[in-house]
Design a protein around this nucleic acid. Sequence first.
DNA 1: CGAAGAGTTGAAGCTCGTCAATAATCGTGG
DNA 2: CCACGATTATTGACGAGCTTCAACTCTTCG
Lengths: 279, 279
Amino acid sequence: MGRERVILGSVELRTTPALGPLSLARPNPLGEKLQRYGALGQHDLGTLDRLCRNRKNLLSNLELAHEGHRLRTVYMIVTGVAYRYKFLANGRRQILGYLLPGDLCDVEFLLSNYCDHTVSLLTDAEVATIPAAELAQTIRDFPSIGRALMQAAAVEGAMLREWLLNVGQRDSVERIAHLFCELAARMQCLGEEGDDLALSIPLTQVELADSVGLTVVHVNRCLQRLRAEKLIAWNRRRLTILDHERLRRVAGFDKSYLKLGRSAQLSGSRQIAAFAAVA
Amino acid sequence: MGRERVILGSVELRTTPALGPLSLARPNPLGEKLQRYGALGQHDLGTLDRLCRNRKNLLSNLELAHEGHRLRTVYMIVTGVAYRYKFLANGRRQILGYLLPGDLCDVEFLLSNYCDHTVSLLTDAEVATIPAAELAQTIRDFPSIGRALMQAAAVEGAMLREWLLNVGQRDSVERIAHLFCELAARMQCLGEEGDDLALSIPLTQVELADSVGLTVVHVNRCLQRLRAEKLIAWNRRRLTILDHERLRRVAGFDKSYLKLGRSAQLSGSRQIAAFAAVA
DNA sequence: CGAAGAGTTGAAGCTCGTCAATAATCGTGG
DNA sequence: CCACGATTATTGACGAGCTTCAACTCTTCG
């Protein structure tokens, strides 16, 4: 595969701690997120809190799920960042998405035979471990939670499609700018973005390259152009967006697909509403 | 947008009929497909047949769903082919996937506010129209159907991720070869592929280009190389795969993510099993 | 301090895109 | 049936975008 991997359970010496507000403890980001997708009562929220009570502090580079394996536990990111990726036989890697606090990894795995991609921690992270059976029971008992989870899955699908459009059709600078806009919008929604609009995600240029389908060298040159234009700053793996509006125009970014606003829960979701467990 | 569109309801003069066995009437491809994902009883299959009883013959280029609109009906492809795509502001288009007989367009739309992409008919097609409410009721009453639909959605997600890996990391010839392998595998599973392994999908090189993120001109040259290598033949929008095994190796194609085999229903899907309707 | 990781730079060249023109095919109407 | 326009496929010349290779710097951390 041409790349080293740290598998679950192995010791990892170098860790990359999350920077800034991302490392602050938060009550239950899953509940906060799901509230965007459907009105949840106190009972629902309490249930979600109980569901996420088992937490672990894990080091960066740990694999939460490995391509080809089966998953018995669902993980929810409490603090920190994770990311999904797939390898090609020749060692090239495509990053498929980033998991921020409140994101699950991965409901889909539960109903598939095996995971088709790998999920690793980008930073040290606090993670809630949710037994599959317990999640299933919760969905069975609380339809509004199931409904919100379905909506969350739909948004994940929309992100993936937008990502494909990005990699397939935009040029290098636009691609990178679009990725930055998406991450910034999601972080802002979490209240994780500081006043200076610095992203609390410690991305290396290698990861950036694997995200947008370019080489590190070229990504580096694109970043220099974005910096020369005073759109962003970059130091020590940390991005700062200097001119949000111009960056958005460069990227052709329209955040509506992320369904971050209040409006997300207004329409839709009336027809098919929730999972129900059966087995 | 730089491209003409044919919206639902408008008259279309030029149509592209599906070639070969694709145009044969089949009983209910949805039932056949879902059986791969979970054991369905006679009762389930009968229900699926009733669900798909309303059928329409539609002309190619018709839009089944338009980006930004809301959907009240779910469509199931009975015969023919459809495809999903998104536009960029500058008119560039990324094709996100192809819908073959048995595929739904799009369960996800039902629970989202609006569709984030457009779905159009590539060929003339027979389509079953399923009222959203009826589908919801079916899922509520028949958990095994809901479970199978979830599995189908999971496979769609896996296809999308593989597609992104393809566009992001493979070179031009590999990309095209991989797309061919995927389509061939799915068609073969439908029993739609003739002895000569000719695909019954009338693809233009423009659509190929928009699928893999290349220009038409370059796609044309890649096709010539694949033809020179005696891996494929191409005439009148019709692909024939001459050497399946070598094409597979060129593409680095591994069909396991498509979950086409019997094994699909063996493990998994025990935890969370089905949708349930709520509203 | 030394080693490893991350970022930066330059030179060279291949892949792929752009422009533009021509040929082949298809569908339609005369 | 043929002629026509529109779509699709093909070809050549040229150049830009991106990759590759390789070296070097800077930072991080033990």
